[in-house]
Simulated scan of single mutants.
Amino acid sequence: MSGIPQWIEDRIDHNLDNTLTQAHVVETMVESERPFFSVRQLHARVKPDVSAATVRNRLRELQEIDVVATETYPDSITLYYIDYPESSWPLSPEGERALHAATPLDRLSTRGFLTLSDTAGIRTLVLAGFQLSLVLFALGGVLTVAGVDTAGTRSDVVLWGSAFDLLFVSLCLLVAERLVRWGRDQYRGSSADASTDFE
């Protein structure tokens, strides 16, 4: 049961007489990509094949020992999730760390940039470009008003020129990303239409 965290391993009942053990249920939940489950969803995943009532009983037992917690929604839908003591529902500690650590720019890869496929990363980069352009415009304006000239160069002109260049590049990047996204949407739409024609 290497997939089960030690704090859960210490709490669960290792009764091997049950067809479906608490360990089986927890292992299924921990190893799944899903953060939470309904009884029906969990029942479809657990091995060995048992009744939904058995799955519900194991979940109730796990809830009593604070391994599993629930959220109830309208229409009597109850979702079960691992009640990690060190993180908020329904994230595992690893998931919560990844969520807080990874910004769109952290996740932006060279491939995602060159193919303009990482929409969030590209837009974050464009926004940063717009903000930096604004800073350069402001600095150029301050130097112009103050009449400051550094080392024989026209600092204000250089800053304004850089700001226009950066603004232009950011706008081009934004337009390119939107055109690529529009093209992909059109291609997906035409592919979907073609597949329905053959059915």
Rank of each mutant, 00 (worst) to 15 (best):
D83R: 04
G129F: 02
R123L: 14
V169K: 01
T19D: 12
S38M: 04
C172P: 03
E199P: 04
F130T: 13
G3Y: 05
S191D: 07
F36P: 06
D193Y: 07
A163S: 09
S170Y: 07
H24P: 05
E61L: 07
E33I: 15
M1H: 11
T78K: 08
A163H: 08
D149Y: 00
I122G: 00
P48W: 06
T153E: 09
R45N: 13
D197N: 11
S162P: 01
V148W: 07
D165E: 14
R56F: 02
S190V: 05
T150L: 15
N15L: 12
Q22T: 02
V67Y: 00
S191N: 02
A146S: 13
Y81R: 12
A192C: 01
V46G: 04
A138Y: 03
D165C: 15
P74F: 04
L20C: 11
W182K: 06
V145R: 05
H100G: 06
G183I: 01
F168P: 03
D149G: 10
L105Y: 06
L114W: 07
S195Q: 09
L174P: 00
W89D: 06
S76C: 11
L167D: 04
I82Y: 01
P35K: 03
D193T: 09
P48V: 09
T196R: 14
P104Q: 10
P90K: 05
F113G: 08
A44C: 13
P93A: 12
L20W: 01
R97T: 14
V157G: 03
D10P: 10
E61R: 00
D66I: 07
V148N: 09
L99W: 06
T28W: 02
V25H: 03
E94L: 14
S2C: 07
D193Q: 08
R184P: 08
E9A: 14
Q131R: 13
I4M: 02
R111C: 13
D185Y: 00
S195E: 12
R111Q: 13
E9G: 08
R34N: 13
L79D: 07
R45H: 08
R60T: 14
I122H: 04
F130Y: 13
D156P: 04
G141C: 03
S170E: 04
L132R: 05
G95T: 10
L166N: 01
Y80G: 01
D75H: 13
A44L: 13
D13M: 09
I122S: 05
Y73T: 09
A69H: 09
Q22C: 06
R40D: 10
T119G: 10
P74M: 07
R111S: 14
L134V: 12
T110I: 14
S162H: 00
A102V: 15
L20M: 11
L59F: 04
D13I: 13
E31V: 14
A52N: 04
N15P: 05
S51F: 02
N18T: 11
A102G: 12
D17N: 15
V126N: 01
D185H: 08
A176Q: 00
C172T: 08
V142L: 08
A23L: 05
G95S: 11
P104L: 09
T70A: 06
D193S: 10
T119M: 12
L136W: 01
G183L: 06
L134I: 14
D197A: 14
